[in-house]
Amino acid sequence: MLKVIICEDNSVHRTKLKQLVENTILREKLDLDAALCTGEPEEVINYIEKKHITGIYFLDVDLKNNMNGIRLGEQIRELDSLGFIIFTTTHLEMSYLAFKYKVEAMDYVIKEDYDFKQRIESCLLKAYNTYYKGNHKEGYISIKEDTRIINIKLCDILFIETTGVAHRIRVHEENRQFEFYGNLKDIQKKLTSNFYRCHKSYIVNKDKIEEIDIKNNKIIMVNGEECYVSFRYKGGLLS
Rank of each mutant, 00 (worst) to 15 (best):
M1A: 03
L2W: 10
V4A: 07
E8V: 04
N10Q: 08
V12E: 14
R14K: 08
K16D: 14
L17F: 07
L17I: 02
K18W: 03
N23K: 12
N23F: 08
L26C: 10
L26G: 08
L26V: 05
D31F: 15
L32P: 00
L32K: 04
A35Y: 12
C37W: 02
T38R: 01
P41T: 06
E42N: 10
V44Y: 00
Y47W: 13
Y47V: 00
Y47S: 05
I48V: 03
E49K: 15
I53R: 07
G55C: 01
Y57P: 03
L59T: 00
D62I: 02
L63H: 00
K64A: 11
N65W: 12
N65G: 03
R71M: 11
R71E: 15
Q75E: 13
D80Q: 12
D80I: 05
D80C: 11
L82H: 07
G83K: 00
I85M: 10
F87P: 01
T89M: 13
S95I: 03
S95T: 04
S95W: 01
K102C: 13
K102Y: 12
E104D: 08
I110P: 00
E112W: 05
Y114G: 10
D115S: 13
F116Q: 06
K117C: 06
R119E: 15
R119H: 04
L124I: 06
L124P: 08
A127S: 08
A127N: 03
N129T: 14
Y131N: 02
Y132H: 10
K133I: 12
G134S: 04
H136M: 08
I143E: 01
I143T: 11
I150C: 08
K153Y: 01
K153R: 14
C155S: 15
C155D: 13
D156T: 00
T162P: 09
A166C: 12
R168V: 13
R168Y: 07
R170G: 08
E174S: 14
E174C: 10
R176W: 02
F178S: 03
E179K: 01
E179G: 00
Y181M: 05
Y181L: 09
N183Y: 00
N183C: 02
N183S: 06
L184C: 02
L184K: 03
D186G: 10
Q188W: 01
K190C: 04
K190S: 15
N194A: 10
C198E: 01
C198L: 10
K200V: 11
K200Y: 02
S201M: 06
I203R: 04
D207G: 07
D207F: 05
D207P: 02
E210G: 15
E210V: 05
D213G: 02
K215H: 10
K218Y: 00
I219V: 12
V222C: 11
N223T: 11
G224M: 03
E225T: 01
E226K: 13
C227K: 03
V229W: 13
F231L: 15
F231N: 15
R232F: 07
K234M: 11
K234F: 09
G235N: 13
G235W: 00
G236E: 04
L238M: 15
S239W: 11
